[in-house]
Amino acid sequence: MSNSILEEIARLGVRSQCATDKGGAAFARLLQIAETGNTSQARRVAAFVASTFNGRRFPFDPFELRAVDAEISDDMLCCLDALRWAQADLYSLVPDGHSRVRAVIQRWGLASRSAS
C-alpha cells in the first residue's frame, strides 16, 4: 500500500476515535437528562436515546432537533456522528448503559408507544 493510502487510513482512524469519544460524552449527558428530567425536552431526549438503542423500534424524527436547546441538539449531533463511524454502540460507552437506556424507555413509556 502506498504511503498516501496509509496516511488516509490513519487520519480516518483518528477522526473515528474522536467522534466516538465525543459521542460517548454527549450520550452520557443526554442519558442523564432523560433519566432525571421531566420536561418536554427531556421526553425528546429520551426518544432520541431510545432511537440510538434500537432505531427500528424507536424511530426518531430529525425535526425534533429544532425543539430542544442548542446544547442538547449539539449533543445529539455528536451522537449521530459517533454512530456513523460505528466503533461502538453508544450505550456501551457509559457505565451500565444497557440497563439505564432500558429504564429510560420504561420511564417515558416509549415501549408501549412503539408497539402501536
Score class of each variant (00 low, 15 high):
P62L: 11
A34M: 01
D81A: 13
N54Y: 07
A82S: 01
V49F: 05
L65E: 14
R44L: 13
E71S: 11
S99F: 05
L65Q: 09
I5W: 11
F53R: 01
A82L: 00
T39P: 02
F60L: 07
G97V: 01
F60K: 13
V49Q: 09
Q17T: 14
Q41C: 12
T36Y: 04
M76T: 08
A103W: 05
A34G: 00
W108R: 07
L83D: 06
L65S: 09
S99E: 08
D89I: 03
I72C: 03
R113K: 08
V104P: 04
D61L: 12
D96N: 04
V14I: 15
L30R: 04
E35F: 07
M1C: 04
L83S: 13
G109K: 00
A47L: 13
D61C: 10
A70E: 12
W85C: 13
A50Q: 06
I72V: 15
A19I: 00
A47E: 14
A115S: 11
A111H: 12
E64M: 10
C78Y: 14
A103N: 06
G23C: 00
I33H: 06
Y91W: 09
L110C: 03
I9R: 15
A88Q: 08
A42N: 03
Q17C: 04
D89V: 04
M1P: 09
D21F: 08
A86P: 11
R102Q: 10
S114L: 12
S112M: 14
N3E: 12
R11N: 12
D81V: 01
F53I: 07
S4E: 14
D74R: 11
D89M: 07
